[in-house]
Structure formats: C-alpha cells, structure tokens
Design a protein around this nucleic acid. Structure first.
Lengths: 170, 170
DNA sequence: TTGATATGTATCAAGTTGATATATGGAGTG
DNA sequence: CACTCCATATATCAACTTGATACATATCAA
C-alpha cells in the first residue's frame, strides 16, 4: 500500500525518492512510513504501470531521478483516498510484553513501565518540537491536524501507562 | 519478532501452530498478531535453534504438530520480556488519508469520517463482547488488562475522530 | 446427503525492512 | 590544506511477512 503515499507526495510536484523519505520523516513518520529499500522498487513499478514518470538529471555531480505523477496516477490516488478504510491494526511490542507480564517479577514490571513512560515522554517532546518547527512554515491544515492527533495519541498512551504503573505499585 | 509471541504462548504448555493462531484471535489479535504462513516457518526455525521441540501425532485423522518450549527457549523468552522496548510505530491508513484530505471534497471528508467512526464503534463492540466472554473464563489479570487497554485505545480513536468530524462540519 | 464451516499443515508470489554498498558534496576541525 | 564526518542520492539483497491458496479430514446443520 506504500505506493499510495508516494502518489500522494507527488500530487503537489515532482520529487526524488530520497526527498519523499526526508519529507516523511518530518510529517507522516509517526503514523505511516516506508523504507528507501521499498520506495525505489515501488517507483519502478509505478512507472511500469504508467502512474508516474521519471526524469533523470545530474545536480551537483549527483544523479537525481525526479518522479512526477501522471493523470492516470492522480486518478488512482483520488480513488484510493475516497475509498472506505478499515480499522488499522496495531503491532505494539510494549503491550505484548504487558500481556506476558505474569512471567516478569513485580519489580521488573515497574522498571520496564517507568522506562517506557520516559520513552513516550521523549517522543512527545520530539513531536512538540516538530510542531513548533512546522508552525513557522505555512503548512496544510490537515497535515497539522495529523500531527496534533499524533501528540494526543502518545499523550493517551503516556496516560494509560501512568495509570497502569499506579496499579502495579499497589 | 513473531518468534517471541510463539515462545510466550508455549510458556504454559505445548500447542500447535493453528491453536496459537486461534488463541491470538481471542487475545492479542488487536495489538499483535501473525499469519499462519509466518507461524509454521517460524516454528521450524525455532526448532533448528533448539528453542522449541516438536511432537507429531495423529488425532481424529488429522496430523498434529505440537510444539513445546525448551529450557533454552524459556531463557530467550524471559530475556526478551525483560529487555527495554522502543516506541511502537503505527501504520494507520485512516490517518494517512486525513493527511491528504486536501485532495478530497468537504462532503466526502465528512462521509469518510462518519463511516470510519462506525467501523470503530463496531470494533469496540466486538472487543466488549470478547471481554464479557473472557470474564467467564478465569483469565490472567494482565491479559485482561491488555484487552481493557485496547478498548480504551479504540474509544480514544472514536473520540478523536468525533471531534475531528465536528470541526469538519464547521 | 449435501454444503458450509472448523481443524490442521504447508507453500508461494509479492512485497517490506534494515543493512549494506557506492559515490559525491559540504561543513567543520586540526 | 587535509582529513573526517555527515548529508545527499540511488541501488541491492537476505530475511522475513502477508494473504491467498491448496490439501485433507471432521463436524454440524438443513
């Protein structure tokens, strides 16, 4: 499904695979991301299917392959975005460990959760920093909304684990 | 990383791959799951590594391969569960679509979100039904806790999308 | 009796990750 | 000025994962 995010990022102009990866790191990273090892083959496939076009150039001595979306590609993207979406599946190792917490000593449980809460706090801090950076740029309102949702999501998680830690302490 | 969940499910007795998959569907499914096409090769690998042992039998005419965890496997599992855990990455198509909502008409936006909220409500209903089913059984407290967290998580999502729908309507 | 569903193992194409390779440019340091 | 480190940029690959499909038997309802 990564091809859709690539098409999405091409909707406002042509980009290289690397550029898209960097853009993701500043925007969609925390709720949807892809590796470079996936982006390059995906672009080749999209090109074969006629959904994107590629233009090679050499800038500052480096090979650049700029991809742009075709009318057919736009159609595919707009169709995808208007399609019904199923519930996203989580894959959360931290919760999985809680599931098996019976096999961990009470002290270790508390330590792991305290540790994880710190991780969450750090992550929230990063997202807040990203938010103030993006506020200076003139960014799409919906893209800012997804960032806000990310912050709220991790605050919910932080909250939940804090409450869980309290019950562990009793 | 699926091998850890397999080892975890073997900690309280030997099981077949199919049994584990069915157990997951009634427990870890919403925060961590694996396909059968992944379980069988994973067990073969775990067997090669000496972390599980396999016993073949034929029950009611069907071949059964019961796997049990070895002392070495227990060590690996207990080590994994006591290790520091990083923040789980989400991969949420619904949020990705919101990110690109600029390309959708206002009416369509509302429709998609209303639709998705219904999906979430249905999912919450399923989890509540699962909860009351599990309450009749004598289930591990931590395993029940993860189910509660799942319910709260989807209620948070439901809440967030409801608020988002309100702002879309203005 | 027939058809649908559940139990159970297995394989495979297609896709994904994370690591690694290759190469150049630019910035900072001694 | 040389050296190192990092960013830019494309590409490949082993290992793994998914989702579909195949196969075979049992069980249950109509």
């Amino acid at each position: 499904m990564q091809d859709k995010i690539l098409l999405g990022f091409l909707m406002d102009g042509s980009k290289t695979g690397y550029e898209i990866k960097k853009t993701m790191e500043q925007s969609t990273e925390f709720f949807f991301t892809t590796s470079l090892g996936s982006i390059y083959p995906a672009f080749k496939k999209l090109e074969r299917e006629g959904l994107v076009e590629m233009a090679e150039s050499i800038e500052a001595g480096r090979l650049k392959k700029k991809y742009s979306i075709t009318p057919e590609g736009k159609k595919v993207f707009l169709n995808w975005i208007s399609l019904k979406t199923g519930i996203a599946k989580i894959r959360d190792e931290a919760i999985l460990k809680v599931f098996f917490f019976n096999y961990l000593s009470p002290d270790e449980r508390k330590n792991r959760i305290e540790e994880y809460i710190k991780e969450l706090e750090g992550h929230i801090g990063e997202l807040l920093a990203l938010k103030s950076r993006l506020e200076k740029k003139n960014i799409d309102a919906f893209q800012m909304t997804t960032l806000d949702m990310g912050i709220e999501y991790f605050m919910f998680m932080n909250n939940w684990y804090s409450g869980f830690l309290d019950t562990l302490k009793k």
